[in-house]
Amino acid sequence: MGRIVSNFFISMDGVVERPDQWHFGYFDDEMGEVVGSGMASTRAILMGRTLYDEWSQYWPDQGDEDFGGVINPMPKYVLAHEPFEARWQNTTVLSGVDDAAVAEQVRALKERTADGEVTMSGSATTVRWLIAQGLLDELALLVHPVAVATGQRLFEGTGTVPLELTESRALASGVLLVRYAPVYS
């Protein structure tokens, strides 16, 4: 069965919102290698509706250079409360009458991607939902040595979420790569 891995740039105080405001000063070749290796096993992208709306307005017009060449042809799956017509190439909308129906579609997606990972990025709300449904396999966090103080945090209003550390290392920039697996009871 495939795995769902969520990747985040995150501040020391847990903020994941607007990394464009605080992340780029820490991005270097070493971090690029970490991000690139994470994409190497990616077979599909999973995202929430808000991220889809943002990315589908930008990436299709960027051509095949850099990340556009990766994201545009790749299969994309969007979790949405209501069905909608997706116009970005290779996009499938996963929606249903309730959480259980959508979760079943995500489980089927994991089964179809048995040879790789479904990468999920950019939405703390979607990560929280995936964890609540027992569907997230790994959180891959690049923890930046900065306190942002304002913005959405990864775990807001979730209660306790037990995690098991599976990898950690410090990058030369002071950013920490930490990987956690949610512990489902």
Rank of each mutant, 00 (worst) to 15 (best):
D99E: 14
V106I: 02
D137K: 01
N90M: 04
E82C: 08
G69C: 12
I71F: 14
V78D: 00
P75K: 12
N90L: 03
V118C: 01
V118A: 01
I131Y: 06
L79P: 00
I71C: 03
D98W: 14
K110Q: 14
T113I: 09
P83G: 08
E104M: 02
D98P: 07
W129A: 12
M120W: 05
A101S: 10
H144W: 00
L136Y: 10
T113C: 07
L139P: 11
G122M: 07
N72H: 08
V97S: 13
L130G: 03
E104Q: 09
G96W: 11
K110W: 14
V148L: 10
G116F: 11
T119P: 00
L135C: 08
V106A: 04
L94K: 11
E82F: 10
N72C: 08
M74S: 12
V93E: 09
V70D: 05
W88N: 01
D115T: 14
V127T: 14
A86F: 06
A140G: 04
E111H: 13
V118H: 04
R87C: 01
A86D: 03
G116E: 12
A100T: 03
F84C: 11
A101C: 03
I71G: 02
A140I: 02
A100I: 05
A147D: 04
P145G: 14
E111A: 15
E138N: 13
M120D: 05
L79F: 09
A132V: 03
L79I: 15
T91N: 02
A108W: 11
A132E: 09
V127G: 10
E111M: 14
E82V: 05
I131F: 05
D99F: 11
E138F: 15
A132Q: 06
V78Q: 02
I131R: 01
L79T: 09
Y77K: 07
N90Q: 02
K110H: 12
R112C: 01
V148S: 08
K76M: 12
V146S: 06
A149K: 06
V78W: 04
R87D: 03
D137V: 02
A147I: 13
L136M: 09
A147F: 06
E138P: 15
E104T: 00
I71D: 01
G69P: 00
G134Y: 15
T92H: 03
L79K: 10
L136R: 03
S95C: 02
E85C: 01
R87G: 06
A80Q: 04
G116V: 07
Q105M: 11
P83W: 02
R87K: 14
A86W: 13
A108V: 08
V143M: 10
S123G: 04
F84A: 11
L135M: 06
